[in-house]
Design a protein around this nucleic acid. Structure first.
Length: 257
DNA sequence: ATGGCAAACGCAGTTTGA
């Protein structure tokens, strides 16, 4: 089974790229972030035409998450269990006994911003949510745009980013808290020393110069590790005309034996 | 030189992203 995560930075703009990427990659599941579309405008019909059903949870202008799948989805839910977020940042579903949790973690803007406090609170709440999910679904994949570079190995210029938003100690500690539930950063698990990025700033020719961060993550539970086959970042999707500033991160799971 | 680019909203320029 092939499962990917991609922050598309507007699904309205990127829909043609998503459609062609799905057909070329033959992914079974694609989790999207920053769709920026209210639910009535979600392109479910266009995706159904090429064989993908959609779970979507959006809003206008900001945020928005979705899961596209050519396998049947069960036990789908969006937002926190009490529906109290107010921002469309989380949706979850199951394919058989595999639980998939798709997140768009708040950016935080700057360390002195109210948005930074919201980010840290959101991550604490995610950890509580995942504890309950894992109890019910041991085979769990948490993926999405985390807006956190897990370590300096995930940053093109660690000195320039030291202590900055996306790299602060508190953000990294919050991510470690989530990992401590028994989750593993699958790209890092497969590539212990690799320096690859999933996001490149639109400015300053960052992609051409390969200046970026690895902030789009796939975290798999202990029970998922034996099924891990391959994880890679698809840079080709960042090299097209009018790209998203993020590239898809792609996971290949071994077929159940 | 501490910017740059892109998208939404809406129709000019502000806000946000990371």
């Amino acid at each position: 089974m092939k499962i990917a995560s991609w922050n598309v930075n507007s699904l309205k703009v990127r829909l043609p790229q998503v459609l062609s990427w799905l057909q070329e990659s033959q992914s079974d599941v694609l989790c999207l972030q920053e769709t920026k579309l209210p639910d009535p405008r979600f392109p479910a019909a266009e995706l159904a035409e090429i064989g993908y059903q959609s779970l979507f949870h959006g809003q206008s202008t900001y945020n928005g998450v979705a899961i596209l799948s050519r396998l049947p989805l069960q036990a789908s839910q969006c937002d926190w269990p009490d529906g109290s977020d107010g921002q469309a940042r989380l949706c979850a579903t199951s394919i058989g006994d595999l639980r998939i949790v798709n997140v768009y973690v708040p950016n935080g803007q700057s360390l002195d911003s109210d948005k930074y406090r919201y980010k840290l609170d959101w991550l604490a709440r995610l950890q509580d949510f995942l504890r309950a999910e894992l109890a019910r679904w041991p085979r769990l994949l948490l993926l999405g745009d985390f807006n956190i570079a897990p370590s300096d190995l995930d940053v093109h210029d660690p000195a320039a980013w030291a202590g900055e938003i996306l790299c602060s100690d508190a953000e990294r500690a919050a991510l470690q808290g989530i990992l401590s539930l028994g989750l593993h950063d699958l790209f890092r698990h497969q590539h212990p020393d690799a320096q690859e990025w999933s996001w490149w700033d639109y400015r300053a020719a960052s992609f051409r110069r390969n200046i970026g961060l690895r902030i789009d993550l796939l975290l798999g539970s202990d029970a998922l590790l034996p099924a891990l086959d391959d994880v890679h970042i698809d840079r080709t999707a960042r090299a097209v005309e009018r790209p998203s500033d993020h590239a898809p991160v792609v996971l290949q799971l071994k077929e159940p034996s």
